[in-house]
Design a binder for these strands. Structure first.
Lengths: 251, 251
DNA sequence: ATATGTGAAAAGGTTCACAGCA
DNA sequence: TGCTGTGAACCTTTTCACATAT
């Protein structure tokens, strides 16, 4: 298979830092809103506020794209929308398949933001024969048997996995074998893929757990904030459990 | 309202780096799988592979929690499960409300991973009166009018927003006013919240756009990989559009 | 006068490589 | 001997502050 030869660190692309790439969609959304309100120009300060970042970061981000602003004035909204869209590859059409049409898959299929910005749902695929032919979001669900044909016929390079965790790796492998090189994974599993395939994951329970961590800290702070405990003692006592321990001990 | 006084950089908590916190759920999932297979101990190498990270990173992450391993042996699975659970605050029960019971909200309500790990769906809330009383995931949907009462009665501190973008900010404000201090936002909007409230967002279209960026790069590479263009010339020409430009120009 | 664009400093995160302990 | 735990080196990202352009 003709995978691109040149191996590059994948965390960095054409000089645009990954952290910047991850924020471009945010800027684009804010700019699109301004564009719809026919706002002609915007300052880094205003746009940053709308995107929820600080202005220095935004300016630095834009500096990687080029000098698209005007000193003393700001940025031309329409022009920036175009430049960011082009940079993100949204001036072309990306056919996408969604595999796994359960509750979540159906929700994704119905999600409007999909179609609007360069993405087109080319097919909905499910392993359940009872689903085949049923319309979801105005589209007939197709059976997994035809996955390879669907990918090839539609030139799909982006796949969305919304199956149960147990099926995800197998679906992933079939997608990749059929030519998909970018995967958005909603299943709570680590997918392993060959080099050259990008995977991004969206994981509800991970997000909740991160929130719980901070939530717990807030609660603990209220109780222990002004205690006599000095910062250093606040560190977890090493090797010794500081409360009841469940069952097993290290050794 | 009694918000914790001490303002800390929020990006760092009790000495555990944010990047580490974000990976703990991953380790926990891998460990839980091992635990279910009754594997007693695991090396950093094995566990790292299961979690999809490298072993040095994993060891460094664990070093922030304490010295929970045994040199020459590895980590005790059950013990680590407990320690990480405790660190993440999963040894306690977190009641959660989901606001916006459309396709996505229903999918979230039905998501099993919710209940399993410390989280409990306390209520489903929707603004549509026609939804009120309807059972979703074995639970009656309640009306937005009762939002404040539901939050208070159940001691909810974590809210999930799955409404349309237009409603999200308003829902957010009501949640926060009622006492919620952590929000998981699925609506494609930037939420503004007071200090002390954590927001995490899950945004399908942002993830897709990031994938499209890399996908575009892959395609471009195949065409231009061995071109005469030196790396420096591959940078975007500044100030000058390098192709057709849509309509407007900066100035 | 005003707001961009960017070097330089600071902070945060990852990887290396090996000392230290079982 | 084998694997953890961790300083030190390295890389990425953020922030600062100001020169530069309109």
């Amino acid at each position: 298979m003709a995978t691109g030869r040149t191996h590059r660190p994948a965390t960095r692309s054409r000089g645009i830092p990954e952290a910047t790439v991850a924020r471009l969609p945010l800027y684009l959304r804010a700019l699109t809103a301004l564009s719809e309100r026919s706002v002609p120009t915007v300052s880094s300060e205003e746009l940053a506020a709308a995107a929820g970042v600080n202005s220095a970061k935004l300016r630095k981000d834009f500096s990687y794209l080029g000098s698209y602003g005007t000193r003393g004035v700001g940025y031309d909204v329409e022009y920036l929308v175009y430049q960011i869209s082009r940079e993100l590859g949204l001036t072309q059409d990306w056919p996408v398949v969604i595999v796994g049409i359960g509750n979540l898959g159906a929700a994704l299929a119905n999600y409007g933001g999909f179609a609007s910005r360069g993405f087109r749902v080319a097919a909905l695929i499910d392993a359940d024969p009872a689903m085949a032919g049923k319309p979801v979001a105005g589209m007939p669900v197709q059976h997994t048997d035809d996955l390879e044909k669907i990918i090839e016929d539609n030139g799909v390079s982006i796949g969305v996995i919304a199956t149960p965790a147990g099926a995800a790796q197998q679906v992933c492998e079939r997608l990749v074998a059929a030519g998909v090189t970018s995967i958005l994974n909603f299943a709570p599993t680590v997918l392993s893929v060959p080099d050259g395939v990008d995977v991004r994951k969206v994981d509800l329970s991970i997000e909740l757990q991160i929130l719980a961590f901070h939530e717990q800290r807030k609660a603990g702070e209220d109780l222990a904030a002004d205690d006599v405990v000095p910062p250093v003692a606040a560190k977890q006592p090493r090797k010794g459990p500081d409360g009841d321990v469940p069952a097993v001990m290290p050794a």
